[in-house]
């Protein structure tokens, strides 16, 4: 069976599994579930699986997507339970279906973040954050493939809101997932570089949902 897609969660301790390691964990989980992945032809065959948007180490997600192909036929409705039973703690498959949309159609990601402030007032911080990100330009110096480069991340932020909580500010955002790709970690990095007084003591993020260019849910 070709053109299959999984939707899965990666939360808890599993957020520390790197993208490359995750691919191997998936490959082995298929083997443990008695499902045979299709392999590439050639000198060094590898299973034909691909994760749509690689996730950074430390970021959680409840909306990961992975394309795969299977040898033989299987009941797709049973796949989530079969795979979830043999995956490491924190990885859970929620859906398996035949894909109808190209991966390039995936455009936006909804994320939530938690900016922890140990000694500062979250309400004051939330107000400051709103102001900071209301600027027309938010420049961040970051490592790129061609060394250090400065980029304006503002155009990649479609929506952004802050709400004070207990010892932390909670953030909700819709950011560009592809072309350009915005790593939500850069939201905290922008503060460290440009407004250290607003920079959180610790930040973590969770991907919530995937959208297309028209902000329709993407599957």
């Amino acid at each position: 069976m070709d053109k299959l897609r999984l939707r899965f969660e990666k939360t808890g301790r599993a957020v520390y599994i790197s993208h490359l390691d995750l691919m191997r964990n998936m490959q082995r989980a298929f083997a443990r579930a008695g499902l045979e992945l299709k392999y590439s032809e050639g000198f060094n065959p590898h299973p034909l699986i691909s994760i749509l948007l690689p996730l950074s180490v430390g970021t959680a997600s409840v909306c990961e997507l992975m394309d795969f192909r299977l040898r033989g036929e299987t009941e797709l409705a049973q796949l989530p339970a079969r795979l979830s039973a043999v995956l490491p703690e924190g990885i859970r498959v929620t859906e398996a279906y035949e894909q109808t949309r190209k991966s390039a159609e995936l455009k936006y990601l909804a994320v939530e973040g938690r900016f922890e402030y140990d000694e500062r007032d979250p309400a004051a911080m939330a107000a400051g954050l709103e102001d900071f990100f209301a600027q027309e330009e938010v420049r961040v110096l970051r490592k790129t493939k061609r060394g250090m480069g400065q980029a304006d991340i503002r155009p990649a932020i479609r929506e952004l809101g802050f709400e004070p909580g207990e010892g932390a500010v909670l953030l909700r955002a819709v950011i560009s997932a592809q072309e350009p790709t915005l790593n939500p970690e850069l939201l905290a990095e922008a503060l460290r570089q440009n407004a250290p007084e607003l920079a959180p003591d610790f930040a973590k993020f969770t991907r919530l949902e995937t959208y297309d260019a028209q902000m329709r849910i993407y599957r």
């Binding site: 520390y16 790197s18 390691d21 964990n25 703690e89």
Partner: peptide, 8 residues
């Protein structure tokens, strides 16, 4: 990942 456990 080597410091958190949770493996299968």
């Amino acid at each position: 990942a080597r410091y958190v456990g949770g493996e299968y």
